[in-house]
């Protein structure tokens, strides 16, 4: 696997402006996102960091169209997500977005392979089988293809999650704490895989609280109380240096 930095263009694949989102579970409603502006360039790897409750997952769900913001505009490849019907949004999610969640969220009545095949078959039945086999091999989990989801390790399951997200060749891969439930060895395994996806040109937007994981990104934005308070770009090929730079930035800003 390679971890060389892919080219990024200045053209944003994803742009969000004035995103506000509140939850009505309390009275008055809690405003979780307070007018966030964010742009993600094509091929970019963006990490969103922040303390618990800062709104980072909410932001990911909002900009990926999983949740609807109260106000604001979101465009993916120029399409205004807030103006799409539920059906159009589903089609867009199928063809242009991939998701990785902390819990994996697999259907336990299907094998690992069928879980990955599911979106592929739906998007493009012809060639889905071959594409899935190639992904399984690429991420080193072809030997567990016929296993059930309870028979494999957390790391293998998250790699399967990445395969599933990539099965329809999306424009953007959204990852919500993909390593949150993994030990350090498995975290390394999964981040190498995500790094590989990015290296092949897929835009990645990842939420994490782990600086080590975030240091893989090109750019890190930091959220506090529903607002982007700062951001930094990480350069250089040495992972340890990148992690050191990020830790330094975080402590300098008191994050």
């Amino acid at each position: 696997m390679t971890t060389t930095m892919p080219p990024t263009t200045s053209e944003p694949v994803l742009s969000a402006h004035g995103i506000r989102k509140s939850f009505a579970t309390s009275d008055p409603p809690t405003e979780v996102l307070r007018g966030i502006d964010l742009e993600v360039a094509t091929g970019e790897f963006l990490a969103v960091m922040g303390a618990s409750g800062s709104g980072k997952s909410t932001l990911l769900y909002a900009i990926s169209g999983l949740d609807r913001p109260d106000t604001g505009e979101i465009a993916l490849e120029g399409k205004d997500l807030t103006a799409l019907t539920e059906k159009e949004m589903s089609a867009l999610r199928l063809h242009r977005m991939g998701f990785i969640f902390q819990q994996g969220y697999f259907l336990d009545n299907l094998t690992i392979r069928d879980n990955i095949l599911l979106p592929a078959l739906k998007a493009e039945p012809s060639g889905a089988d071959a594409a899935v086999d190639e992904l399984l091999e690429r991420f080193g989990i072809d030997h567990i293809a016929g296993h059930g989801v309870t028979e494999v390790s957390g790391g293998q399951l998250q790699r399967a999650s990445i395969c599933r997200a990539l099965a329809t060749d999306p424009a953007v891969l959204f990852a919500d704490e993909p390593t949150g439930a993994l030990n350090s060895a498995m975290t390394e395994e999964v981040m190498t895989a995500i790094g590989d996806v990015h290296a092949r040109g897929t835009t990645v937007v990842m939420v994490t609280h782990d600086p080590r994981v975030a240091s893989r990104a090109d750019r890190v934005v930091y959220l506090r109380d529903g607002d982007v308070v700062d951001e930094t770009r990480l350069t250089g090929a040495d992972p340890e240096q990148r992690e050191h730079d990020l830790q330094d930035w975080l402590s300098r800003n008191g994050f």
């Binding site: 999983l66 539920e86 059906k87 999610r93 329809t168």
Partner: peptide, 8 residues
Amino acid sequence: RALGFSSG
């Protein structure tokens, strides 16, 4: 739905 199935 996250995988692209509509609620319909």
